[in-house]
Design a protein around this nucleic acid. Structure first.
Lengths: 362, 362
DNA sequence: TCCCAAACTGCAACCGGTTGCATTTACCTG
DNA sequence: CAGGTAAATGCAACCGGTTGCAGTTTGGGA
């Protein structure tokens, strides 16, 4: 027994051991002493992958000793050696955006199942905060990054990407091809929304688009134009109204402006649900009935949009699935660095509720 | 220069250094070599608190070298030595409960400002998952736990508490007195709700209570009884209806059952907003008008309850504040272990919207 | 009974910092 | 210019595991 710490076998039985008279959480060396084996042997006995290197009887003794002492391995030490922390940095704009929690759950469920942990941080879309956050995560040596802040052409990517740390993007693709991403089928969603409105007889449809510097904003706007063309509907410049950000307030303001200048609009396709909620509020204030006067379609089907009045017709994206896929992609890349980076496109589904109705002549 | 790694000063200029021909993220030893100083000196030069132990000129040189190499300190190594990880375990029931994200933001904002990181995990109220989660967090040597799973009399607490790791509870108090907690003033909230209804002329008020094994469920039910007494209103056993869990479905079922047996009820106080949402749905299905036939009050004022129809009258609790206070309490305890454990009670406020109205004879 | 390979176990370097202590350098005084 | 002290820096142990390699035990065959 070379261990400096003494722990007479079968005496200690709590999750603290003693040096002199100071209690401390038990270490591998305590377990080794308790089981009367060398620390290296103890390590192998406790480690799934190396367990068959030790005699079964010894392994049992070590495991019992560990249990008796309430031993909890210090992953920090292992991480230091193995250069792997089993932790993933998750960079979000703002967790209180209801769109995100299900995604985060998806990420966490997949990660924890494999012994990983997510380190979550919010940037509030502030470049400075983001930089700090990434630096902090890098200092903690996360094995990879899952990034859900959706500004295009991100300088951060280069910083991270250089050291060869895997990255998975959520809800946007990178302009470079060495980074994986998970997105929903924006185009299909918008096409379904427009198609639904056309079927209801609408002809004057306006898109309230998201910010152009977010890939979702740009992609959905583009898809809207295409969908209109497919349906042989003209698209004037005024048929796409740009929002500065995805927010209720912006949706509200946009709607007010649209109806201040035009009065033939019978349907609105919002770039996301938050904008749509603003639209509903504005219509109420404008004494316009939804869906009788104006139909509204949202995007995302985030929680509770089925409970507002009128219940929102919207394009459902599988938020949990996005998170889960992103995490899985990350694990794949960590497990096998030769994994090709890829873009996973998840299907979407139009959920028709009460905010859309047949077009009536005005 | 004893460093094994060589890095000729002013050659390297990216965030990777080289051993032989293998690129790796630069370490302190690389920085030391680059600045032509000993690793110990480099450590002191980069560390705020020890910087004045080195010559200013040297400190500058080291800092420049670090910047040039894109050095990012490996906190794991430091943590191993200092036995402090600057990370806090946050145990939640389920992040997708809309009540939680603002709390989590509060926690994170306070923690990150001090260089700490939150490790978040969900338990789904499953004891087994919780045990695993706590074990995993313990293995990662978090400096403390913030726990928002609100079952009373938690065995987990004893496991954690034994090694002397600080704990802060959210939304409940512990039956033991060595654990701090942050709660909202449930009693005041319920009193305000009942008072509001009484002012509107309601006499037959029923409370749909939360689970009795959650401290919020029990406390609010107790407060309801007291508030009714204060207002000289009788409380029969049937005036408190127990839910198995805080959910829309339970609120729905409870309402159906209540109106199946009684028809004089004119007002309902729900133990939380989710139950209240279920109530609204049930009333609609029962062809009862809210607020004309029945008034409803919720609890929490979680996001979007102002957008449902009718907009929910509810008791607002400062979710962000709860999180922020909890984190602050945690930091206090970590900074000074002699800090007395305490219970912080945050004020609440009744937000009157459209789900309550004067009582009309039926 | 002896020998050898296979199975176990022990040894010690290593991960990347931090920090008490020893040593060197710089500077000041008599 | 010697001597002494303070400032600056170097040295090396340490945190708690992991792991390649060496040494020891075990078991089977000759």
């Amino acid at each position: 027994m070379t261990s400096l710490r003494k722990a007479e076998p079968s005496q200690a039985n709590s999750s603290v051991a003693t040096i002199g008279n100071v209690r401390h959480t038990p270490t591998l060396s305590d377990v080794a002493a308790e089981a009367q084996v060398h620390i290296g042997t103890a390590s192998r006995a406790l480690n799934e992958s190396t367990r068959d290197m030790v005699k079964p009887e010894t392994a049992r003794r070590v495991q019992e000793a560990a249990a008796r002492l309430g031993y909890s391995p210090n992953v920090l030490a292992g991480s230091l050696r193995s250069q792997k922390t089993a932790s993933i940095g998750v960079v979000l704009p703002d967790l209180t955006n209801p769109f995100l929690p299900p995604i985060v759950r998806g990420i966490e469920d997949v990660l924890t199942k494999r012994g990983y942990v997510a380190l979550i941080g919010n940037t509030d879309n502030d470049a400075g905060l983001e930089r700090k956050l990434v630096e902090s995560l890098r200092a903690r040596r996360v094995d990879g990054f899952i990034i859900a802040t959706s500004k295009r052409n991100h300088p951060i990517l280069n910083i991270i990407a250089k050291p060869g740390t895997p990255i998975v993007l959520i809800n946007r693709t990178a302009d470079r091809d060495d980074i994986s991403s998970v997105i929903s089928n924006d185009a299909a969603g918008i096409r379904a929304a427009v198609g639904h409105l056309v079927e209801l007889g609408h002809k004057h449809i306006v898109h309230i688009a998201g910010p152009a510097d977010l890939s979702t904003g740009r992609d959905r706007a583009k898809a809207f134009k295409e969908a209109m063309q497919e349906n042989k509907l003209p698209t004037n410049k005024t048929d796409i109204f740009l929002c500065e950000q995805y927010s209720i307030a912006e949706g509200y303001a946009a709607t007010k402006q649209i109806f201040a200048t035009r009065n033939n609009v019978t349907a609105l396709v919002a770039a996301n649900d938050r904008i749509a909620l603003g639209v509903l509020q504005a219509l109420r204030d404008l004494k316009l009935s939804c869906p009788n006067d104006v139909s509204v379609v949202g995007f995302n089907d985030m929680p509770f949009v089925d409970l507002v009045t009128p219940a929102l017709t919207t394009v459902r994206v599988n938020q949990y699935g996005i998170g889960a896929q992103a995490a899985q992609l990350m694990l794949d890349q960590l497990g096998d660095s030769s994994t090709v980076t890829k873009t996973i496109v998840l299907p979407v589904k139009l959920i028709v509720r009460s905010s859309t109705a047949p077009c009536k002549p005005r």
